[in-house]
Design a protein around this nucleic acid. Structure first.
Length: 533
DNA sequence: CGTGACGCCTCTT
DNA sequence: GGCGTCACG
């Protein structure tokens, strides 16, 4: 929804633009808008949970647009939505209900053999899932495209990035379809960008410094502007019946003060103001100013603009409506795409049944989680750092990229453990992080990785998006840090086995030599736990 | 004249 | 998420 009719209202200030204008600059991208558009090309597959090539067309769509930007020497920074805001629950429940009913009737049509009718309904039933976002993230990693998962609203994160300098991760403009970016006071927004890079640009400078047929924001400040947006109706707070963007603008223009507008509305008998409207209104305005965002520099959550207690005394310091705080370790794990921001579970890298996450890590840490492995498929992705997963067959699979001299290699092994024991253990530990500080010597097999090809217009085969590259493999002893953390977890379970065996990478059926393990001491073992709030 | 409810569209060849 | 249309006050 964004802000009701805001875009149409702002039309006088919107000008056509081609992204080439931002050549050499950085542009933030609202991942949701491209994901959503791309999902249309494969809505049925997505709704039915198909994992065919067809179900991945949304990825192709997205990456085409990324390549377009890179072709014009623009650095894309993709921003994903994180957890949902409490005050947005009403809006989202409504959408969910409609999607569900559409999905039901779509399946009915399909049963009746009406494919065409079914597709139409599936298109209204598609929703962007964390799994889809995560599939995309894996490609972005491989393609060295910057991305961040916002703790809550992507719009807020994007607006925050637009306030930062480029060398601190900032962006010069934002591409989105959502008018909320304007309410968040994002200085440069590009709407409706097509596949050639043509779009419509809104610059706040233009809005506040020019006059256009009776429409002027010259004497507006940020406070008044967001006040107008909230009055017109936003996702956090529906507007008072009878008030739209034009009346909102007039009210602000007339009273030039939010409190005066509120009291004027209260006295006006034409409108029915809910008892709690003024408080909700204040909160909604505060979200647009002080939303919780992720700061990549400090690797912590922060408010877009610091909020003093005196700003909103009625809250008694309760700022949860801005998005509850999270411990830094969790915030980072979310931002870097390791934790599902809705469930706080580690992502199931096999993209199968949602698994119960136990532990998760970032960067140089290993990720450990139980993942049900189906159809005995080989692991088919690679990632920076290391990941592990517990398979149905009670194995932990470890994948890690290692630097040996000038060469980057991929290491894959499996360790057998007792799953039940492991689950119990891990659950009792909560979500833990295990930095890789051990130095265990393990002999493993290794494979050379191909350097990623970032040629903008090079066609990629989608089936090729994530495999561990196969090439010559040979045995070399390497320090495998992940090993230590495996032991930490496994040793707590008496039934766990410490068998280590090599596993053929990806789909290559090539025979790899068995690896052997050499144990050493792990004195530097550190387990960090997520702090309770 | 402005609001709000309704239906239609976003992709792909 | 947006857009255009149209009945209503």
């Amino acid at each position: 929804m964004g802000i009701q009719s805001l875009l149409r209202f702002m039309k006088p200030f919107i000008e056509p633009v081609h992204i080439e204008k931002y050549s050499g600059k950085r542009i933030g991208i609202d991942a949701y808008s491209w994901l959503h558009k791309g999902a249309y090309s494969c809505s049925m597959e997505l709704c039915l949970g198909s994992r065919s090539e067809g179900a991945k067309r949304f990825l192709k769509y997205f990456m085409h647009h990324i390549d377009l930007l890179r072709h014009y020497k623009i650095t894309p920074v993709v921003v994903f939505d994180g957890g949902s805001m409490p005050c947005k629950a009403a809006t989202e429940n409504e959408r969910h209900r409609r999607r569900e009913t559409n999905l039901e009737s779509a399946k009915e049509k399909l049963k009746q053999g009406d494919v065409r009718g079914a597709v139409e309904l599936f298109q209204r039933a598609v929703r962007i899932t964390p799994s889809m976002a995560h599939q995309l993230i894996q490609i972005l990693r491989k393609e060295n495209v910057e991305f961040v998962v916002a703790p809550y609203e992507a719009d807020a994160q994007l607006a925050y990035l637009s306030t930062l300098d480029a060398d601190k991760g900032g962006v010069d403009a934002v591409i989105t379809e959502d008018s909320d970016l304007i309410a968040y006071f994002c200085q440069a927004v590009i709407f409706k960008m097509d596949r050639y890079g043509n779009g419509e640009e809104l610059l706040l400078d233009r809005v506040f410094n020019s006059v256009s047929n009776e429409l002027s924001f010259k004497n507006f400040d940020k406070e008044l502007f967001t006040g107008m947006c909230v009055l017109a109706g936003c996702d956090f707070l529906p507007s008072i019946s009878g008030i739209g963007i034009k009346r909102a603008y007039s009210l602000i223009l007339k009273y030039r003060n939010l409190d005066r507008v509120l009291s004027a509305l209260k006295l006006d008998k034409r409108y029915q103001i809910p008892e709690d409207y003024p408080e909700s209104f204040r909160k909604a305005v505060a979200v647009f100013h002080h939303a919780t965002v992720y700061d990549a520099e400090t690797k912590k959550l922060k408010h877009m603009k610091p909020l003093q207690h005196k700003d909103m005394p009625s809250l008694n310091g309760d700022l949860d409506f801005l998005g509850p705080e999270l411990p830094p370790s969790m915030a980072t794990a979310i931002a870097e795409g390791h934790l599902n921001p809705l469930t706080m579970e580690a992502f199931d890298y096999f993209c199968k049944i949602p698994s119960r996450a136990d532990t998760s890590t970032v960067d140089n840490c290993i990720t450990i989680f139980p993942a049900k492995r189906m159809n005995n498929e080989d692991i088919s992705y690679r990632d920076q750092g290391s990941q592990m997963s517990l398979t149905q067959e009670s194995c932990i699979t470890i994948i890690s990229d290692q630097q040996v001299g000038d060469e980057e290699i991929t290491v894959t092994r499996q360790v057998k453990v007792d799953q039940k024991k492991y689950m119990k253990e891990a659950l009792s530990l909560g979500k833990l992080i295990a930095p890789l500080e051990s130095q265990q010597q393990v002999e493993i097999h290794m494979e050379r990785s191909e350097t990623p090809n970032n040629n903008p217009f090079k066609r990629r085969k989608l089936g090729d998006i994530n495999p561990i590259k196969k090439s010559s493999s040979h045995q070399v002893p390497v320090l495998l840090d992940a090993e230590k953390s495996v032991d930490v977890l496994c040793s707590s379970s008496p039934e766990s086995q410490e068998t280590v065996e090599s596993k053929p990478n990806n789909k290559s059926k090539a025979k790899h030599p068995k690896s052997t393990k050499t144990k050493t001491d792990n004195k530097n073992s550190i387990l960090r736990f997520f702090q309770p709030l």
